[in-house]
Amino acid sequence: MAAITGPLGKADQKVVAKALQGALVDLIDLSLVAKQAHWNVIGPNFRPLHLQLDELVDIARGHADTIAERAVALGVNPDGRAATVGEATRLAQPEVAWLEDGKVIALFTDILEGVSKRMRERIKATDEPDPVTQDLLIAVAQDIDKQHWMFQAQR
């Protein structure tokens, strides 16, 4: 079977593939961690956090699909398997327990700050090799930054 090839040279493809794979891992795990918190959050702010976490899941899943499809368009195989995400994730993991609303707010403020920082690194890395990918990463960063602000404002 013929491989899918993309428009980038090998060196540029390697840089962009690394950025896309890192973004994919962040986004997949963000959706999983947010859903875990969504199921287990308790406290006076349960309802708004429950809904906000679902919004975050939808955002992360939507961007993950776009990022993975960009990788394929460039001739790169995205890897969103559970084992890969588990090995590569840099996100803090919530406890398997009831999660007090204040702890959820603190956890997601920190998680989103880390994801935002890594997205900015990826944005810089893709500036020269692929401005199209950079543009997608900028869109991800915009939504992550907005979510960070919304969680941080609740502290």
Rank of each mutant, 00 (worst) to 15 (best):
E128G: 12
L56D: 05
L91N: 03
R70L: 00
P48K: 01
I67L: 11
D127T: 11
L112M: 10
I28A: 09
A68I: 08
V33D: 00
A64Q: 02
V115I: 07
D54Q: 09
L24F: 15
Q52F: 12
K10D: 10
A139D: 12
E95G: 08
L24Q: 13
V132I: 12
V57Q: 13
A141M: 13
D54R: 06
L27H: 10
W149K: 03
M150H: 04
L99P: 05
L137V: 10
K18E: 12
H50I: 02
A153N: 09
I105A: 07
T109L: 12
K10L: 14
R90V: 15
R61N: 12
F46D: 02
K146Q: 15
D127W: 15
F151K: 07
L8A: 01
M1K: 11
P94M: 07
K35A: 08
E55T: 10
V85F: 04
K124Y: 12
W39Q: 05
W39A: 02
K103N: 15
I105Q: 00
A11G: 10
I123M: 08
T66V: 15
Q152D: 15
L30S: 06
R70H: 02
L53G: 00
T84P: 10
V140M: 08
N40C: 05
A73L: 04
A125C: 09
L20P: 03
V76P: 04
E69T: 03
D12K: 07
D29H: 02
V96P: 12
H148W: 07
A141G: 10
D145Q: 04
H50N: 04
E55D: 13
T126Y: 02
R122F: 14
V41N: 00
L136G: 12
I42C: 07
L137E: 09
A82S: 14
R155A: 15
D65L: 06
A37E: 11
V72E: 01
F46W: 03
G22M: 05
V140N: 04
I105W: 06
D110A: 14
Q93I: 10
I67M: 09
I105G: 05
A68E: 01
E100V: 10
A83H: 11
D58C: 05
A19F: 04
T5R: 02
K146L: 14
L32E: 10
M150F: 07
E95W: 06
G6V: 05
K10H: 11
P7I: 15
A37Q: 11
T109S: 13
S31T: 10
I144H: 03
V76Y: 00
L51P: 04
V132Y: 07
V132D: 08
A19Y: 00
T84R: 13
A73N: 01
F46M: 06
V41Q: 01
G62H: 06
T133W: 05
I59W: 07
R70Y: 01
G6R: 01
A139F: 09
I144L: 05
D135K: 09
F46C: 00
R155F: 13
K35M: 08
L112H: 03
V16Q: 00
S31W: 08
T5F: 04
R122K: 11
A82H: 14
L53E: 01
D54L: 08
L24I: 13
A68H: 05
F151S: 11
T84I: 15
E69K: 06
N77V: 11
P129H: 05
A3P: 01
G62V: 06
A92I: 15
G75T: 03
E69A: 06
D110L: 11
